[in-house]
Amino acid sequence: MAGAEKPNLMLISVGTILTSMILAGFLLGFFVDSLFQTTPIFLLSFGFLGILGGILKAYKLLTDPELN
């Protein structure tokens, strides 16, 4: 039962997970940049990683929800 419930419920949030991972990447990059005074470098690279991670995570959730 637990195996059947969990993936279904996680699938509800695929859309927001994608967007919030992109957002989280840019936010983390912005924070690191303001810490080290290196403005566009980490913002852009972490943002890119966030986009990549978001797409990857959404793909994983949709193709193999058991793993999540």
């Binding site: 949030s13 927001t16 997970i17 967007t19 919030s20 991972m21 957002l23 989280a24 990447g25 936010l27 983390l28 972490f46 990683l49 966030g50 990549l52 991670g53 978001g54 995570k57």
Partner: peptide, 21 residues
């Protein structure tokens, strides 16, 4: 290094997605 950033982003995305949704 990429793993650290990716996992940090993933963890940070949890509260963000909860609150923003």
């Amino acid at each position: 290094p990429i793993n650290i950033v990716m996992t940090a982003i993933e963890e940070l995305a949890k509260p963000l997605s909860l609150g923003l949704r």
